[in-house]
Design a protein around this nucleic acid. Structure first.
Lengths: 347, 347
DNA sequence: CTGAAAGCGCTTACAG
DNA sequence: CTGAAAGCGCTTACAG
């Protein structure tokens, strides 16, 4: 191949640096890759030369011999779902602290797409984080045989898992409603197959029981604004005076429909959502909701992934930290859509 | 190095395939990389062997000799900004059609971060798309010297640019307001330095002039809910009976504050936003807004990028398609927050 | 159409 | 601490 002269676009290599610094390329590699394995003098020589040549490492050349990419993948189930914003940011912030680069992708709520995307990502990364994965456990375990895999919003035995602990937030919400005179509480449910939906309902039911309140489960057709609107009739017919919804979208749709039917929120009916999504403060009144520590979830997932990287010395007895289940507290964000039940409305 | 036996985790190479298929590794490479340069019989031999070994190409090994990664980067200014959802999806969909993988990153609205991220991304990709870049033109041109760069929501001479054409949507909005009895219209402005903000105001002013309506520019402290709330006083004091806002967040904040002051929307005042963001239908009434073809913007940006890749035969006379400016139509989404001005409110 | 060989830019035992 | 060499897994002129 014809020798190309060094122009604006072409890149300097460690050989160029070696020549300029008067050392061997392998020494340049050592100085650049892991400072400390080279004399201070040589280090400086190399760094100066690198700076002068405006050197930056070729990531592909580096990854080829080592297999390490310093990159991880994050696959979310739906890029438009606001709960992922902070998960993304938390993971990304934690990553850049460790010199890792994040590759983001979405599965558009399809288990098949999720698998395809994960398989495509894995070879180009050191591992992946799956946020609210839709694949079956078994498939995720298979993926995890090759490289580290961590899941968020799901707990899988033997796989690093980060899930919000819904109990604290739900407990707060139920006590808040009880304190405001509510005696019968509805739960507008999420998708049937959703692991998280089951968990939220179960926690709600238990909290109501504990507080000696009546609870009722009302399924929704879909976890969307429209699902919330359509659930309004059942909610009103249930005799409950307040509802906790599986997610904020349901809660907002429900509130819209109640208001359309001239039901005053919160004077006559209290509505509480889940997730504290972007836009949950757009409504009038603003939506009360249970918030997960999403940023922390993202960061924790990355830590788990890092801990699972080969080379991390934890081949001891107990399960590797990478196979741990991490539970992070949720909290109630009380805003305008929930509050005291006016006496006139109780009947 | 000790020979490692092939276990679940380790990967097959083209040498393994070559051995199994009884051909030379270079033939395997040809068969896999660009089918058609090999006899049908050999092709099948190779493919079968590859399938049997569960082969997948090592992206780093492939990228090293060629420099081609089949990957592109998309940098958005703020991952939490809903206008990027559809841009991301549009680009990603167009990309996977061409066998390209997307790497997503955000700059958190910082020009410095944006540059850092872009510089880190460029070596690992074939080019990047910058959505609403915050860097100065000159810096973007520098980046573009090395590899293809395309911008969205900004027009830079000599750089592939995709911008929504705001005129159609704004024209619709102004005619809609005029038809509903509004004579004086306010524009709640965006960030001073924002290219797009200037463009929107200018288009609005021109449309009002054309319709012989009075227009007034009211700056906002920031393009947020809070900025919208704080602009309410000025808006009410301006004598206008309707407002177009630089973005939906401003419009929603403005509407909230008006309603808090018992101004009826839209009977006494009409509010129109811009961007049709996630959540713009959470409000009561739902927000009227001007929508950009964001998905198309994302897809178009990717096409421009692809066209700019070396090897794309367009070294002809006129500016490469990659240096083109693409303008995509906006439209009005009329919902509940805008409409007829009641006579009683006109005075 | 297919083989044999060189090379992409780095890392890492192996010597010294 | 540093050099010389081999190798990571592919691609692509060059021959035939």
């Amino acid at each position: 191949m014809a020798k190309i002269s060094r122009t604006a676009g072409s890149k300097a290599t460690i050989y160029d640096i070696a020549k300029l610094a008067g050392v061997n390329p392998s020494t340049v590699s050592r100085a650049l890759a892991k400072p400390g394995r080279v004399s201070a003098k040589t280090q400086k020589l190399v760094e100066d030369a690198a700076a002068e040549l405006n050197y930056s490492v070729n990531p592909f050349a580096r990854a080829l011999p080592t297999g390490r990419t310093n990159t991880f993948g994050l696959i979310v189930s739906d890029i438009t779902n606001p709960i992922y914003f902070d998960i993304i940011r938390g993971a990304e912030a934690a990553a850049s602290l460790s010199g890792f680069t994040m590759i983001l992708a979405e599965s558009a709520e399809s288990a098949d797409t999720e698998l395809t995307v994960a398989q495509r990502m894995l070879p180009a990364t050191d591992g992946v984080i799956l946020a609210s994965p839709r694949m079956p456990d078994a498939r995720i375990r298979e993926l995890a045989e090759g490289k580290p895999v961590v899941v968020i919003n799901r707990s899988i035995e033997g796989i690093g898992s980060v899930v919000p602990d819904v109990d604290p937030g739900i407990g707060e919400a139920v006590r808040h409603l009880a304190a405001n005179g509510h005696r019968k509480l509805a739960f507008v449910g999420g998708p049937k197959q959703s692991w998280m939906a089951a968990r939220r309902w179960e926690s709600f039911r238990a909290a109501c029981e504990w507080s000696r309140l009546e609870s009722v489960l009302l399924p929704a057709t879909s976890p969307t604004l429209d699902g919330g609107r359509r659930a309004a009739r059942d909610v009103m017919g249930s005799g409950a005076t307040s509802a906790l919804c599986y997610n904020d979208l349901l809660a907002i749709g429900l509130m819209q429909e109640l208001q359309a039917a001239s039901v005053k929120v919160p004077d006559e009916f209290s509505v509480i959502g889940f997730d504290n999504i972007f836009g949950s403060d757009f409504t009038t009144p603003q939506l009360s909701t249970i918030a997960s520590p999403l940023r922390e979830c993202g960061a924790a997932a990355l830590e788990l992934l890092l801990a699972a990287l080969p080379g991390t010395a934890t081949e001891t007895g107990k399960p590797a930290p990478s196979a741990r289940l991490l539970e992070l507290r949720t909290t109630l964000v009380a805003r305008g859509s929930s509050g005291r039940l006016l006496a006139s409305a109780a009947g």
